[in-house]
Structure formats: C-alpha cells, structure tokens
Amino acid sequence: MITKITGIIRRDLRLIAGIVTNNSRVLDVGCGEGELLDYLDKNKEVDGRGIELSSTGVNSCVAAGLSVIQGDADQDLDNYPDQAFDYVVLSQTLQATRQPHKVLDNLVRIGKYAIVSFPNFGHWRVRLALMVHGRMPQTDILSYNWYDTPNIHFCTIKDFVALCVKLNINIESGIALNRRGFERKIGGKGLRFANLRGEQAIFLLTRH
C-alpha cells in the first residue's frame, strides 16, 4: 500500500508494537509481509493474526509461520465477532480503503483497542506542493502519481479527529511523527501544530 522508507516505517511499527501488551490477541489488518506480526510474535508473545490483500504478501506470511488470510479491510472485517481481539492494527492502510468510516467502526467493534496509523495530508510539505506548484503532492511517503495511487481516501490529522468524534470513537492517545521520526503528542492545543508538522500519525482508539 505504501512505499517503505525503512527508518520512518520501522519507527511507526516500533511505536505500534510499543503500545501492544504482552500475550495479547492482535489482528493486523493490511499486514503486508508480516513485519509487525513477526516482531510481536517474537518479542511480545502475542496471539497474532493478519489480513492482507496481496497474495504474495499472504503467502510469504504463511510461509513464515504467521496466521494470515487473504482478504481486505472493506469486505472481511464484518465477519469477525465483537471484541475478539485486544488490539486491531490498521497501519498505513486507512487511506486505501473504500469506506474508511465503516472500517474504523469495525476496528473498534472487533478490538478492545484499535491502533490506526496513516500519512497526514495536512503536513506542510503536502500543503506547500499544492499551494506553490499547484500539483498533486508527491512526497517520500506519498510517492504515487495521482492517477495510479491506491490511496483514495486521504485525510489530515484534524479530519481524522473530527471523524472519530462523529463516529463516537474515543481517542485514547495520538502521536504525530515528523520526517526524522520525532514524536509529538496530539491533543488540545498541539493538534494544529501536529497537523502541520506531523508526516504521519498513530492513534489509539476505543469504542465510547
């Protein structure tokens, strides 16, 4: 779904892994090649499962001993029962779903906690690209052309917070990551700044 820039993405996954508690049940939606699941399996002894759209991703996950099925966030989450997992992770995938609001609803339904990370379309570089060049932004994280991108539902950190309010989803905490991987807590007065400086965001959510 997203171009991998080792430093930043690894940092993103490490932060997510930091939130997950030991021996918990985790569903990683859009698990790619299973980096996070593998890390959690080895370091936190979680009972981990994954859903991945690409069959190459799925097959390499299963071949690595991970419990992963082929499927997608829009269609397959409906099947899972309420509160079946401690954490449901959606990392850098929200912007590629057809109905992000329904996906979010499902995440907090299936998991006691949902952990969602996404690229922030409100980042100053993105804004600058549009304002100065008048072209659709292409950055390190958003490296696709407008016509071939799988990312069809971009949002800013502010948009995301507003959607959570609308969906009655509780934001337990939020972190914005800048280009160098520095973290900043999202909340209160910091929201505006985070929305400008954060290249990506990670949120911990629960159902109200």
Binding site: R49, N59, V68, I69, Q70, G71, D76, N79, Y80, P81
Partner: peptide, 18 residues
C-alpha cells in the same frame, strides 16, 4: 470456510495458490 472460522475468531491462515 475461512469466513466461518473468522466469525468465531479461530486461528486461521488462508492462501490461494496461483
């Protein structure tokens, strides 16, 4: 089958081989 297993949060892997 996978759908049914998911519905009870069972531990399942699924691969379609090309």
């Amino acid at each position: 089958i996978v759908k049914a297993l998911n519905a009870v949060a069972a531990n399942v892997s699924f691969a379609e081989i090309d």
